[in-house]
Write a protein that binds this DNA or RNA. Sequence first.
DNA 1: AAGATAATCTTTACAGCGTTCAAATCCGGG
DNA 2: CCCGGATTTGAACGCTGTAAAGATTATCTT
Lengths: 206, 206
Amino acid sequence: MTADAADPKPYHHGDLSRALVEAAERLLEREGASALSLRAVAREAGVSAAAPYHHFKDKNELLNAVARLGFEQMGQAMKKAIEGLATPSERMNAVGVAYVCFARENKALYNLMYDPGRDRDFRADAPQSPDSPLAIVMAAIRENAPPDAALIDIQLSQIAGWCAAHGLAQMAGNKDFDPLKAALGGEKAFFSQVLSHLGMYRGLKL
Amino acid sequence: MTADAADPKPYHHGDLSRALVEAAERLLEREGASALSLRAVAREAGVSAAAPYHHFKDKNELLNAVARLGFEQMGQAMKKAIEGLATPSERMNAVGVAYVCFARENKALYNLMYDPGRDRDFRADAPQSPDSPLAIVMAAIRENAPPDAALIDIQLSQIAGWCAAHGLAQMAGNKDFDPLKAALGGEKAFFSQVLSHLGMYRGLKL
DNA sequence: AAGATAATCTTTACAGCGTTCAAATCCGGG
DNA sequence: CCCGGATTTGAACGCTGTAAAGATTATCTT
């Protein structure tokens, strides 16, 4: 209680930049993406409509900051999901399921992170950090590859696996999948099974 | 030249509903998604801003009509891509590549079709029609499955293949993939190879 | 300590958006 | 011929993103 519960109006908010990002994330999960206007974010943070422009060049830049936060949270959730798993195969499967689950549980945030209509200045999902979702997926697939695999095959498999997880994350809400989900005993099992069936796309046996 | 090049101002436009959808699609590929306002579409069609409301309840409903048109065009492009291909394996690969290619060549339209932020009243991509992109992908994967495969495995593989194609379509613009694309001799080869490597996600040999 | 300078926030303003409503315009059936 | 219903327009409302100018507070220099 040293810096947080200060006076109600410090007039120079202190750390408005962070407060705006947090207000935006709060608004995003409370009211959905359509309610996420710059003015609404400013309102939620208790500040005037023009104040954000001293911390972000654009609405787009504020959304980029929200997305960056989302990538961190997603990476942490995925790391927690593979804690204590022994085999590379188990870890790879858990990473994929965790990826899709996070996307489903934070639908609006995930859509914001990968919105193809926005200018994202940072790399698609901050692959430079080893804790980014993409890096975690890449590592899990690499470590599960056969030891004699060629580098290019590993790379292509990594991309394929990531694309499949991303596609599943976006399509998982499709109502046509409901009977299949029920037959398998829930969404998580459905995600796991879909990812496990990737190989059959080529007509291979499992 | 019987009905198209009529008077410049028929005042009761004749078929404004279709004209609006076409104006929207034109605007979409000329100026991009951010320029696709209802007022801009009306302007492009040479009509007042309130006119669309007698043919579409919403902006959203107009966009749904544009998306429907996009699904038809995409299905036709995919059917043309498998004409004359002999084996199920060839057809499946061509379908996947055609799917991703159409999405890349009509980026704004494809994003509109699968925009997760919009209310889409029709089924995700009109699966009732056998010419819909989803139906074509499903059929190509089914016909390439081993004859003794269980129904549920086929279904899961269909979903997996579709998700992978969709994910690749959205991620294909990632600059990180450029060296790989170059090494393989172009985007089309890259798409084909990524889809062919789906199986390796499970550590299987190709 | 005091005053200058920079950073932050507010107020006001503008153009564009989606949408609604009343008034104007056109078309087909009596 | 004229009337009723469909179509289109014009103006209006509240919302948005963004810019400019003024007010307020923090920081730096001396």
